[in-house]
């Protein structure tokens, strides 16, 4: 029932000539208040939340962005959506460079679903009026079809018609997240960026939203970028994973490759740190020691070296670039010791 009103983007061609969305040397900075205090603390006055990121999203794929809080993953997503200005770099979308001020027609093609469905919906608007406003402003459908299209959208996310006259407060958390997804889909986007879409929800409800996202991908051919700190969720939903640390992408690989053959020591630590149902806890050394450094005091050289178990003198001087593996062109990592015997985890 959805195919007519929400046309799926063209089937992916056999060989991808150009990614749907690509970022080159993307940098986002935030200026910080007091300059004197910053100078006294020997800190930079500019916080580089995203620091020279190159990233490609291919049509139809589901890409995951994982990392700890403060790694810049949400800022990267907001920059791609056009919600924060770039300090440097460019974003290409569908073959064109997107200008700093995007046109409405560009805005609607990249949509975002936010983490907290309690604060991202306007409490004073009914679901129906919220959707109608969007559809009118962006001229998605003729006025006479606004009602029927709204109903169709709600059906798509598994809500009934009776949701139209309801206010967000009348819904549970999972239902609100469905409304938020319907709102993002209303503009028929090519890319949906979902920023931690299930982390505010209860465990039993998370599954319904994850299944919904997976079904929408299959049904609409949607390109999805999922931001999550939960690697189990990522493994369930995504084709490719990019790992971020302190504003940089430090490893990119197809999901199963990343999980079975992680190359960056941070990725290895992240995988080891996840509590698992099947293994009992132990008291041994933690997977990664210490706290992530402040983004105001990014270590020179490799930015992970302060917590890295295999760091050497070289890591203090040379900042490793994101390198593509010689054996597997889909796998790249930003570590001097990646894809070599030296970087392999010590046996036992």
């Amino acid at each position: 029932m959805t195919a007519a009103a929400l046309p799926a983007p063209a089937a992916p061609p056999a060989r991808e000539p150009e990614p749907l969305l690509s970022a080159t040397d993307l940098t986002v900075t935030f200026g910080l208040g007091s300059s004197i205090a910053a100078r006294l603390r020997h800190e930079a006055r500019v916080l580089r939340a995203v620091d020279g990121v190159d990233l490609e999203i291919r049509r139809g794929e589901a890409l995951a962005l994982v990392g700890e809080s403060g790694s810049g993953k949400s800022t990267l997503a907001r920059a791609l959506t056009g919600l924060v200005p770039l300090a440097k770099g460019e974003i290409r979308f569908d073959g064109r460079v997107l200008p700093a001020r995007r046109k409405h027609s560009d805005q609607r093609r990249i949509q975002m679903v936010f983490q907290d469905p309690y604060s991202s919906l306007n409490p004073r608007l009914t679901v129906g009026s919220m959707l109608a406003e969007l559809l009118r402003v962006h001229h998605v459908v003729p006025r006479s079809e606004v009602g029927s299209f709204s109903r169709e959208l709600l059906g798509l996310v598994g809500l009934g018609e009776d949701a139209l006259p309801a206010y967000p407060r009348q819904f549970s958390g999972g239902q609100r997240q469905r409304v938020a997804i319907a709102r993002a889909l209303a503009l028929r986007p090519d890319i949906l960026l979902a920023d931690e879409p299930v982390s505010a929800l209860d465990v039993s409800v998370q599954a319904t939203i994850l299944n919904l996202l997976r079904d929408l991908r299959a049904e609409l051919g949607l390109t999805l970028m999922l931001i999550s700190h939960n690697l189990a969720v990522v493994r369930h939903l995504c084709d490719r994973v990019a790992v971020m640390y302190l504003g940089r992408i430090i490893e990119v690989a197809p999901t199963e490759t990343l999980f079975s053959n992680p190359q960056h020591p941070y990725t290895r630590g992240l995988l080891a740190a996840i509590p698992k149902l099947s293994t009992a806890g132990d008291e041994g050394a933690p997977a990664i020691a210490g706290d992530p450094p402040s983004p105001l005091r990014i270590p020179a050289g490799c930015r992970f070296r302060t917590r890295c178990p295999i760091a050497e003198a070289r890591c203090e001087q040379e900042d490793p670039a994101l390198r593509i593996s010689a054996d597997d062109s889909s796998h790249s990592a930003a570590c001097h010791f990646a894809f070599s015997a030296a970087g392999a985890p010590a046996a036992g």
Binding site: S172, A207, L210, K276, L277
Partner: peptide, 24 residues
């Protein structure tokens, strides 16, 4: 059983998660 089946498990990727229907 529902809780265990609805959470994505890191070691055991299932084709589809089985949510618990309804709400608390």
């Amino acid at each position: 059983l529902g809780l265990v089946r609805s959470a994505p498990d890191f070691d055991n990727v299932r084709e589809s998660l089985v949510p618990i229907p309804g709400s608390p």
